[in-house]
């Protein structure tokens, strides 16, 4: 099987809470909020998909449907060939969910006791359980802190224990919902490195990483999907996406006293656009740069700075969300 996750025409409506007016005027009519709108998504075996989208886009709903915690209104989703509604048990056997919500642990149990408990619920017998708990504690570098109470862990340690819990069954697919949320930038970077080196990089495990953090997606993922208002607007490999979009560009800064040059009338500068609302900062396509520079010089303009920039995921994301 080529795709480990297949989502087809997945739609999810949540019931909306009625306000007083609705209660009076239409007491029996159901009100709904659209969370996912006809999503089609494939995740190749062994690939890491970054799931991006603004708040309320539907990322968590999609993760919860794939985790069997929420049923879709229509459409289907299959993991490892198993249907998330009709074959919940088999699906849960195939996935590891990394819930970074720290309240999902028992605070007055040690990290090890927490993992032992969840390992038993994942059907590991006592020998497998002890071995696996030791392995995941080592993998997440918590082996020395395994016997400390969860309440005494730092935020970073709590996140790592959440990852350890997700790995207990050595799942084919790991679903990560914002693994660096609530970490400071330094800890977030360490967590990204850790995920890359220890969790994702060393295995052929597939993963979906739902996040707001574009750096995280660029660092960890091979593919990206962008959801907006419940609709999937982009699904591509990151490299293809960058190639398909604007490509690399030049950032051009003119001397501020020369901004009166009418750049818009330059013959070959379609694709040259002012940036950030500043009058002297422009983005120029790479194939136009020599023409633009020549025209500016010819018209007496002064170029203060000309830097080649790579298209980042942030550029693509902003464009997709605005568009």
């Amino acid at each position: 099987m080529h795709n480990i996750i297949e989502v087809r025409n997945l739609t999810k409506y949540y019931p909306a809470i009625k306000n007083a007016k609705d209660f009076l005027l239409s007491p029996f009519r159901r009100h709904h909020v659209l969370a996912l709108d006809d999503i089609n998504l494939d995740v190749e075996r062994g690939s890491i998909l970054g799931l991006l989208g603004p708040n309320g886009a539907g990322k968590t709903t999609l993760i919860k449907i794939l985790s069997t915690l929420v049923h879709p209104t229509s459409g289907s989703a299959r993991i490892n060939g198993f249907d998330v509604v009709r074959q919940e048990r088999q699906v849960r056997r195939s996935i590891g969910i990394v819930m970074t919500e720290e309240r999902s642990f028992y605070w007055r149990l040690t990290g090890r006791q927490n993992l032992e408990f969840f390992a038993t619920l994942n059907n590991l017998n006592s020998r497998q359980r002890d071995k696996r708990v030791h392995e995941v504690l080592c993998q997440t570098e918590l082996d020395k802190d395994g016997d400390r109470m969860f309440k005494d862990y730092s935020t970073g340690m709590k996140q790592r224990l959440a990852i350890a819990r997700g790995l207990l069954c050595d799942p084919d697919v790991i679903l990560l919902d914002e693994p660096t949320r609530s970490l400071d930038p330094h800890a977030a970077r360490n967590m990204r490195d850790f995920l890359k080196e220890k969790i994702i990089g060393q295995t052929r495990r597939s993963a979906i990483l739902a996040t707001h953090n574009l750096q995280e997606v660029e660092a960890l993922c091979s593919h990206v999907a962008i959801i907006k208002n419940g609709s999937l607007i982009i699904q591509e490999t990151i490299d293809t996406l960058k190639a398909q979009t604007a490509g690399d560009y030049y950032l051009l800064r003119l001397a501020s006293n020369r901004t009166s040059i009418d750049l818009g009338s330059l013959p070959a500068v379609q694709g040259l656009m002012p940036l950030f609302g500043t009058p002297n900062l422009f983005q120029v396509k790479t194939d136009k740069i020599s023409t633009v520079l020549k025209e500016i010089m010819d018209r007496g303009g002064t170029v203060e700075e000309c830097v080649r920039k790579k298209v980042t995921l942030e550029d693509i994301f902003s464009k997709a969300i605005k568009g």
């Binding site: 069997t68 048990r89 849960r92 056997r93 969910i97 919500e101 309240r103 994942n122 059907n123």
Partner: peptide, 18 residues
């Protein structure tokens, strides 16, 4: 209330067992 139910339901244990 505590937030542990979601983590329990994500395991392979069936809800009645839980």
């Amino acid at each position: 209330m505590m937030g542990t139910l979601e983590a329990l339901l994500a395991t392979q244990a069936e809800l009645p067992t839980i």
